[in-house]
Simulated assay, not measured.
Amino acid sequence: MRIAIDTDVCIGAGQCALLAPDVFTQDDDGFGTVLPGREDGGAGTLVREAARACPVRAVTLGAPAGP
């Protein structure tokens, strides 16, 4: 499952990093980011909950990137 954060939409609420700290963090400006190497991680329960909890729907889950 491809995991991404739309940086143009993110407001830095931090729900993603709070709910799934193994996948998300916040950058120096406080905006959400996917940890390196986790972009094509599995969409476990916490990742799906983090996507649902984002108040501006900046977290997206989609098909894995193709070769």
Rank of each mutant, 00 (worst) to 15 (best):
Asp6His: 06
Arg2Phe: 03
Cys54Phe: 12
Arg48Met: 15
Asp40Gln: 15
Cys16Met: 01
Ala4Arg: 11
Cys54Trp: 12
Val34Ala: 01
Ala17Tyr: 06
Val34Leu: 07
Thr33Tyr: 00
Asp22Ser: 10
Gln26Ile: 04
Thr60Asn: 11
Ala13Asp: 14
Val56Ala: 11
Thr60Ser: 15
Gln15Pro: 02
Gly37Ala: 12
Gln15Tyr: 09
Val59His: 05
Pro36Trp: 09
Gly42Met: 11
Val47Glu: 15
Phe24Ala: 02
Val59Ile: 13
Leu61Glu: 12
Thr33Leu: 09
Cys54Val: 08
Thr45Tyr: 12
Arg38Lys: 14
Pro55Gly: 14
Pro36Glu: 13
Val9Leu: 08
Cys10Gln: 07
Ile3Arg: 01
Ala13Trp: 11
Thr7Trp: 01
Cys10Tyr: 06
Asp8Lys: 02
Gly62Cys: 09
Ala51Trp: 00
Gly12Gln: 08
Pro55Glu: 13
Asp27Ile: 06
Ala17Cys: 05
Glu49Gly: 12
Ala53Trp: 13
Leu19Ser: 01
Phe31Trp: 10
Asp8Pro: 01
Gln15Trp: 08
Cys54Leu: 11
Leu61Ala: 10
Gly42Leu: 12
Val59Pro: 00
Gln15Leu: 08
Arg38Tyr: 03
Phe31Gly: 05
Val9Cys: 01
Arg38His: 11
Ala53Ser: 15
Met1Arg: 07
Gly14Asn: 07
Thr60Met: 09
Gln26Leu: 12
Gly66Tyr: 03
Thr45His: 14
Arg57Val: 09
Glu49Phe: 14
Arg52Val: 06
Ile11Gln: 13
Asp29Tyr: 06
Cys54Ser: 13
Thr33Met: 13
Asp8Leu: 03
Thr7Gln: 14
Gly62Phe: 14
Thr60Val: 13
Pro21Arg: 04
Ala53Thr: 10
Thr33Ile: 08
Asp28Leu: 06
Gly66Pro: 09
Gly44Tyr: 04
Ala50Phe: 12
Asp40Asn: 15
Leu35Gln: 08
Arg52Asn: 14
Thr60Pro: 00
Arg52Met: 11
Phe24Val: 01
Asp27Val: 04
Asp28Ile: 02
Pro21His: 07
Val59Asn: 05
Ala53Pro: 10
Asp8Cys: 03
Thr7Gly: 10
Leu19Arg: 07
Gly37Pro: 13
Asp22Ile: 00
Pro64Val: 04
Asp22Met: 03
Pro21Trp: 07
Ala13Phe: 15
Thr45Leu: 12
Gly30Gln: 09
Cys54Pro: 15
Arg38Ile: 02
Phe24Cys: 04
Leu18Ala: 09
Ile5Cys: 01
Glu49Cys: 11
Pro21Gln: 08
Thr33Pro: 02
Gly66Ser: 10
Ala63Tyr: 11
Val9Asp: 04
Ala13Cys: 13
Ala13Glu: 11
Gly32Arg: 01
Pro21Lys: 05
Phe31Pro: 02
Arg2Gln: 13
Gln15Ser: 09
Asp6Pro: 00
Thr25Glu: 10
Gly42Asp: 15
Val47Asp: 07
Ala4Phe: 02
Val56Asn: 11
Asp28Cys: 02
Ala63Met: 09
Pro67Lys: 04
Pro36Ile: 06
Gly37Arg: 08
Gly37His: 13
Phe31Asp: 07
Gly37Lys: 08
Glu39Asp: 10
Ala63Gly: 09
Pro67Cys: 03
Asp28Gly: 13
Ala53Gly: 14
